[in-house]
Amino acid sequence: MLQYLALSAILFAIGIFGVLTRRNAVGILMSLELMFNAANINLVVFNRFVGPDNLTGQIFALFVVVVAAAEAVVGLAIVLLLYRNWRGIDIDRINIMKW
């Protein structure tokens, strides 16, 4: 089980790295997908090894997949909007929250 969890952790860490370092908004979204998958792996792993007599984990993973899809849709819509208004989707150029 630990190996699966370690895999999940590695995948999540890579996702975090992507979120932190990608300049491209779509890149960040992709990294987010990685993180979702890491979480899903976790859910499924726990389902398999902690509660194999029910399927709660898998169903939750299913919901996560659905919500992730919704997130991807909305996120990409926002990216498109961003592109339209800023002529680019570089996150570090979008700094209207700067002092």
Binding site: Y4, L7, E33, N37, N40, I41, V44, V45, N47, R48, P52, Q58, A61, L62, V65, V66, A68, A69
Partner: peptide, 18 residues
Amino acid sequence: IYILLHAEFLAVVQVLIY
């Protein structure tokens, strides 16, 4: 990995949706 974990339906969903 999902298949390895006996989550075949999820694996299919993964492929289909993602």
